[in-house]
Amino acid sequence: MSLASVFNIAGTGMSAQSTRLNTIASNIANAETVSSSIDQTYRARHPVFATMFQSAQNGDRGSLFADQDNAGVGVQVLGVVEDQSSLMPRYEPNHPAADAGGYVYYPNVNVVEEMADMISASRAFQTNTEMMNTAKQMMQRVLTLGQ
């Protein structure tokens, strides 16, 4: 029954959104983590989402056009990439981590952007749970058939 796969899809969605929340938490926690060299400074991390498709081996449709045929079976996190935008050097000669020139390097985390991203992730998570709830109600209704 295809209603059961709604649970799987919502599950993958919730898992992906919680990965996203995890990276946001890591970014915000490290927003002020300074370092004395560019290489060692923390960089903002972002997850990369991709659609999951039914694999040709265990799916009943093994055609070459399988990606066009079915609508996909959820979302997956392909990986976490580091933001390559430039870091912020600040002149703080009294800082214990300052380099020879008196500079410390701050991460390229935009806290406002991360907060907006966090709200978006939390809402998306909420939508996935609601979707699961609705599917559960639909299934429970079917169980009362003929009563």
Binding site: I9, A16, F49, A71, G72, G74, V75, S120
Partner: peptide, 9 residues
């Protein structure tokens, strides 16, 4: 459901 799960993909 798949559309909603992929809202940020």
């Amino acid at each position: 459901a798949n559309n909603i799960a992929n809202a940020d993909t």
